[in-house]
């Protein structure tokens, strides 16, 4: 077909590609990420904060709790399947999500957009914190599964460093925030709360959940640095 062309027209840059309808597996990986955040990770978070709360009752009670948890049947398997692997996956895939999102809260400073951005940064804080926390408290130093009554002492020594205490407090708030908003997001994205009012009401529930968890967690931390058990000796059951 006849044409009259101008010399060498510029080419457009390629933009966002269209939907790969029905292709790929990102759906399952993303949904797994979302689901794992609630169960088992959320459930474990709850358990962990409740256990920590035992520390308020003293080194012995805390040691008993650690001992109890470590006496569960197949506890090492449970630990890997329901805690470490899900955490690792949720953390690494979450990191990947963070990498690919392009926060624009500077231009669109709207509430939901702030929450989107905060969710990503609380996730990053949580990931960094949990790596060091698991490494230092679970895999190095005194082995708590074998020596459950050393638990209070080990944590107390850790928190005696004010920097580390600050890290724990910040991480505790970040994690509770991340979890509470994660629950809200889960309900919204899985279509449990499609209605605007339902989302708003559930938002209040999640705020209460977040604040409650954060109080619980901070109380647990306070047990180690508060006036009740200064430089507590290793208890004997």
């Amino acid at each position: 077909m006849a044409t009259v062309e101008s010399p060498a027209s510029p080419q457009l840059r390629s933009g966002v590609e269209p939907l790969r309808a029905g292709q790929g597996s990102s759906f399952i990986w993303r949904k797994l990420h979302s689901l794992l955040g609630i169960v088992p990770i959320g459930a474990f978070l709850l358990e962990h904060l409740l256990s920590n709360y035992e520390a308020l009752k003293g080194p012995l009670a805390y040691g008993n709790q650690v001992k109890f948890l470590n006496s569960l049947p197949m506890v090492r398997v449970l630990e890997w399947v329901f805690i470490f692997l899900p955490l690792l996956y949720h953390g690494l895939y979450g990191f990947y999500i963070w990498l690919r999102g392009k926060s624009n809260v500077v231009y669109y400073p709207w509430a939901g957009n702030w929450m989107y951005t905060i969710q990503r940064y609380t996730g990053l804080i949580a990931l960094a914190y949990i790596i060091q926390h698991v490494w230092r408290q679970r895999f190095t130093g005194v082995m708590l599964p074998e020596n459950p009554y050393y638990a209070f002492h080990k944590v107390q020594v850790e928190l005696s460093n004010p920097w580390m205490l600050a890290i724990y407090v910040i991480a505790m708030i970040a994690i509770c925030w991340h979890f509470a908003y994660g629950v809200w997001l889960f309900a919204a994205k899985w279509g449990i709360t499609p209605g605007v009012n339902a989302r708003r009401r559930f938002g209040y529930v999640c705020i209460a959940l977040g604040i409650g968890l954060a109080c619980l967690g901070l109380a647990g931390i306070f047990a180690f640095v508060g006036p009740w058990y200064p430089s507590a000796p290793i208890p004997t059951p």
Binding site: R20, G22, Q23, S26, G112, V196, R199
Partner: peptide
């Protein structure tokens, strides 16, 4: 099924900017 493909609905981060910006007030987040 198409929307479960790569780039599908799962990629939504629920920042809800869409519903704020929509000039025709579509119930996008719903």
């Amino acid at each position: 099924r198409a929307l479960a493909g790569d780039g599908g609905v799962q990629e939504c981060g629920y920042a809800q900017n869409c519903v704020e910006a929509c000039p025709k007030q579509l119930p996008l987040t719903t």
